[in-house]
């Protein structure tokens, strides 16, 4: 095995645990609902997981660099609001907004710009990313509300295409999510910039002392997160057919849960793109299965909360054990 592909073989224990949990959960739901294992339902799960997966890919890069982006859901909201502002025509009589293909470049450019702004703000203000992106979360959401007048805007035309298109019976967002995850993994494992990003997360001080341009690397990570937020927003709007004030609301928590559950360390320097994908699938599978078996609605949040606690505890215990054995070494797990 060449050194180039070695990261693929270093599948972390947390990823294997996730595979096991996903398999157990799936078997459990399949035994309780004869529809769970249907091909149509698997397609549903993949499609419903796509926005979370894409957002989580961007968040993995940010967290790997010891950052966090609480504004990713607000970016999804504002990027789409800006896209409608630039490429939408409101028809009052139809209670809907017609769109052109320009919504895509505008939303993507907006996502990149808003993510970049997060990095610049973090670099310039020298505040923790938590505080900075908490601020931009409020700012972006406020701007989104202002642009849309906090209304529910039904949309028509090309904006729906991405969320609703299918290829071989599978939603196009699923392919987009897989592509983004592969691209994210290749970036982290195969490019010098990706490795430097992990180094920054592993030890920011060492990274600075060894001459790494940490500020530029953070711009890359946050811009990618913004891009992923905008793409997730495009999928959500394409599927539902409306831009509403709640678009992207709470996305940050789901996405961060997926990243941490997937084995990326909240302390930076360690990332698992494969784990992120699996965790996104697990979270979606739980919601899907709970509905299929007609579970008590009050159980949904309990189950999600328990999973988050387990993930955070496992991550903290693992970080503690590593710190006792050896200093932090940046690594990418498959």
């Amino acid at each position: 095995m060449s050194g180039r592909w070695r990261p693929l073989t270093r599948v972390g224990a947390q990823v294997w645990s996730l595979v096991a949990v996903l398999a157990l959960v799936s078997v459990g739901f399949a035994s309780l609902s004869d529809r769970f294992a249907d091909l149509d339902n698997l397609r549903n799960v993949l499609l419903q997981a796509a926005p979370t997966m894409i957002g989580a890919v961007g968040m993995t890069l940010v967290i790997a660099a010891r950052g966090i982006d609480l504004s990713i859901g607000a970016i999804a909201n504002l990027a789409l609001a800006l896209a409608l502002l630039g490429a939408g025509t409101r028809s009052e009589a139809a209670l809907a907004t017609d769109t052109t293909w320009l919504v895509y470049p505008i939303a993507i450019a907006s996502g990149l710009a808003l993510g970049t702004l997060n990095a610049v703000a973090t670099n310039v203000l020298r505040l923790s990313a938590l505080i900075t992106t908490l601020g931009t979360l409020t700012l972006y959401r406020g701007l989104g509300l202002h642009i849309t007048a906090a209304g529910l805007i039904a949309v028509r035309g090309p904006i729906l295409a991405f969320g609703r298109a299918q290829l071989w019976g599978i939603g196009v967002p699923v392919f987009a999510a897989v592509l983004m995850a592969v691209a994210g993994w290749v970036f982290l494992s195969e490019t010098p910039t990706g490795r430097r990003l992990l180094a920054v997360g592993g030890s920011p001080r060492s990274a600075v002392e060894t001459g790494l341009r940490t500020e530029r690397l953070l711009v890359v990570a946050y811009a990618a997160s913004g891009l992923c937020g905008a793409i997730a927003g495009l999928i959500l709007v394409g599927r539902v057919g409306v831009v509403n004030p709640d678009l992207g609301y709470g996305m940050e928590f789901t996405v961060i849960t997926a990243v941490v559950l997937g084995g990326t360390s909240l302390f930076g320097g360690r990332a698992s793109m494969f784990g992120t994908v699996l965790a996104s699938l697990l979270l979606t599978t739980i919601d899907n299965g709970m509905t299929l078996i007609g579970a008590d609605p009050y159980a949904y949040d309990v189950v999600r909360g328990v999973i988050l606690l387990i993930a955070v505890s496992a991550d903290a215990a693992s970080a503690h054990m590593r710190s006792r054995r050896s200093p932090v070494i940046p690594e990418l797990r498959a």
Partner: peptide
């Protein structure tokens, strides 16, 4: 949307 999709599946 997700809830309706899942319920119709089941």
């Amino acid at each position: 949307l997700d809830g309706t999709e899942n319920a119709l599946q089941a």
